[in-house]
Amino acid sequence: MPKANVTFEDIGVTVTVPAGTRLIEISEKVGAGITYGCREGECATCMMKIVSGMENMTERSVLEDKVLQENMASRKHRLACQAQVLGGEIVVRPG
């Protein structure tokens, strides 16, 4: 199974994960500073910044895109409860 390396900048930890894993599953386990609300892509509490490796993430769904826009997110932001990793290197931070 393809793997991805996700680095959480705020705590200085890199986690090797299978492709398809949602960021929420990793950050919660590793104790990164990404907090959660609804976990269903509506509240935007888990908005985070992709420092690098956006190309290694799934595309935004229509729902995620709408919620991010409503919350004035930049193109570098994603919802941890929606975004899945595809492979390669990804660096994220709360934000």
Binding site: N5, G12, V13, T14, V15, T16, P18, K29, V30, G31
Partner: peptide, 24 residues
């Protein structure tokens, strides 16, 4: 960590799944 001297750690997800809570 405060002084920027902490070494970065690499963990496999399978190790994290064995633990009840976050494992730093």
């Amino acid at each position: 960590h405060l002084t920027g001297r902490a070494s970065r750690r690499v963990i496999d997800m399978s190790e994290l799944l064995k633990e009840p809570s976050h494992a730093q």
